[in-house]
Design a protein around this nucleic acid. Structure first.
Lengths: 119, 119
DNA sequence: TGAATATATGAACAATTATTCATATATTCA
DNA sequence: TGAATATATGAATAATTGTTCATATATTCA
């Protein structure tokens, strides 16, 4: 027989499907949620976030601290900015970045806790 | 002049660097943390997690619910399994997946809250 | 104004990763 | 035992994404 259309008649637990499909969030919202976690899913960005937890910093400071080029840091800061993870203030030539709110720090620490607990 | 070696003498805020470098976590730990968030950073996996919050489910159920192939779901479940996000129990031919602990659900909801608050 | 400095950014390249396809394994049941 | 079913998986492909390189913009200060 031809490959069946993937479970079209083979729902194993129809009751479960019914119950769960009522409760799960819209696909759109879950796509946004994945997008949000994507921000934390890069070690450069996580290191920037970790640094900014402790102090506002300018691009040059961050680049020096992480031993990376200004360009790489600037690109990642752009992503963090667009995602409203960081805010910034320009004073003269220097742009100071800081975490947008303490929600970010809480999510960071929740991840840390999980990592440390499973050791 | 040649492109300077990226801030080697141009530390703008030496005091900040000093303070922050003492407080930030080891790079290794932050790499692990990014790896952990990577698990949540895919919409298929987030949708699986969201489903499993509401009920244990088998591969076929999940595939039907998300309208995806068994293979795609199985591959993602493998990643979730390896990351200890889900656990499973095989009964006969059927493998039932469930969230490994309620930590996972809390991290999921923390993300949801952030998304919803910023609307 | 012009040199120096701090940051930003487009394009190219390299690396990673999700899905598909084909196939394999495991289990049930006639 | 053999057909049917549920799940798993390796390899290939397609898509996404991080960094580098070159260059642009903005600001200060002599």
């Amino acid at each position: 027989m031809k490959e069946e259309l993937e479970c079209e008649q083979t729902i194993i637990h129809e009751d479960v499907i019914k119950k769960v499909s009522k409760k799960i969030k819209d696909e759109d919202e879950l796509v946004d949620l994945a997008e949000f976690f994507k921000i934390f899913a890069d070690s450069t960005r996580i290191r920037i976030i970790n640094a900014l937890i402790h102090s506002d910093m300018c691009v040059c400071d961050i680049a020096y601290l992480l031993n990376m080029t200004h360009s790489a840091i600037s690109h990642q800061l752009k992503i963090l900015k667009q995602a409203k993870i960081v805010k910034y203030e320009k004073i003269g030539k220097v742009v100071y970045y800081s975490l947008d709110d303490d929600h970010i720090e809480r999510i960071f620490h929740m991840g840390v806790n999980h990592i440390e607990e499973r050791k």
